[in-house]
């Protein structure tokens, strides 16, 4: 069996294992889904008038703010889901079965790839569910073509893959689930410091470059452009570069951690 078929086969086996876990114990996934949904309702119904008045030059328009805030919240959903990934990877590493995997003639990274694939699927599911809530409260995509929808989906998957590999590394580097949860906090805090809720140009001048070039803002601006027809500029390239870079970094970090001798 060639290395590639071995990798594919073992990775799909590990994915099945992780999907079984997720299906048996869905509570963690549901908890993490609650945060973006709550934030969506909070920003639209409670803060919506004020926020939209600030952005729209004084006129409160809650429905306009739904359109503004949804792309950011969809990406925040991914950040939130990957916190669960860090926790479950950290938990999984304490299981005896991981030691068994290490002593079997399997494709080693498949243990991690299984987690990543499972997590990306969970991200997609969560994004669809949050998207459904957004549609229910009035979000509408304006004249997005099929190609733009496809590109939006591809971006979400790419972004989920990048954050998941980073989260897997965090899970592997953490001694326990609590530490994993803490170290993954930036994944849900970063969107608050991005253009998810307010435009970057409304932020303090010294902070604008940070907000502009951190991983979330280019992805949010690209998604906004694809779904709502706003200008994308070089954000698409920035977003793809961030995704590829974070994926490579997360992969190298995770596999290196996994290959070091366990205690």
């Amino acid at each position: 069996m060639s290395t590639l078929t071995l990798a594919l086969r073992d990775s799909s086996t590990m994915l099945r294992r992780n999907l079984l876990h997720a299906r048996r114990y869905p509570s963690l996934t549901l908890n993490l889904l609650l945060t973006p949904v709550m934030l969506l309702l909070l920003f639209v119904y409670i803060l919506g008038d004020t926020m939209s008045a600030g952005i729209g030059g004084g006129t409160p328009d809650r429905s306009a703010y739904i359109a503004y805030v949804v792309p950011g919240l969809l990406l925040m959903t991914i950040g939130s889901t990957t916190i669960g990934t860090a926790v479950s990877v950290s938990n999984d590493m304490t299981e005896g079965i991981i030691a068994r995997f290490r002593t079997m003639a399997i494709h080693r990274p498949s243990v991690l790839v299984g987690h990543v694939l499972g997590s990306v699927l969970q991200c997609v599911t969560s994004v669809v569910l949050v998207g459904a809530v957004a549609l229910a409260i009035g979000f509408r995509s304006t004249h997005a073509t099929a190609l733009e929808w496809l590109a939006a989906f591809a971006l979400l998957v790419l972004f989920a893959t990048a954050l998941t590999w980073i989260a897997v590394g965090m899970g592997l580097a953490s001694p326990n689930a609590e530490a994993a949860s803490n170290s993954a906090m930036p994944l849900i805090l970063l969107p608050l410091l991005s253009s998810a809720f307010t435009p970057v140009h409304s932020m303090p001048g010294w902070f604008q470059p940070i907000a502009q070039y951190q991983p979330f803002t280019p992805a949010i601006e690209t998604l906004r452009g694809l779904l709502l027809g706003t200008g994308i500029g070089n954000n698409a390239w920035l977003a793809v570069a961030w995704c590829v870079g974070l994926t490579a970094l997360g992969y190298l970090w995770s596999t290196a951690r996994f290959n070091t001798d366990p205690k």
Partner: peptide, 14 residues
């Protein structure tokens, strides 16, 4: 080889 470690190497969740 096959290994049965001191701490059970089974997946408790499944």
């Amino acid at each position: 080889i096959g290994v049965t470690g001191q701490f059970s190497a089974v997946d408790g969740l499944i």
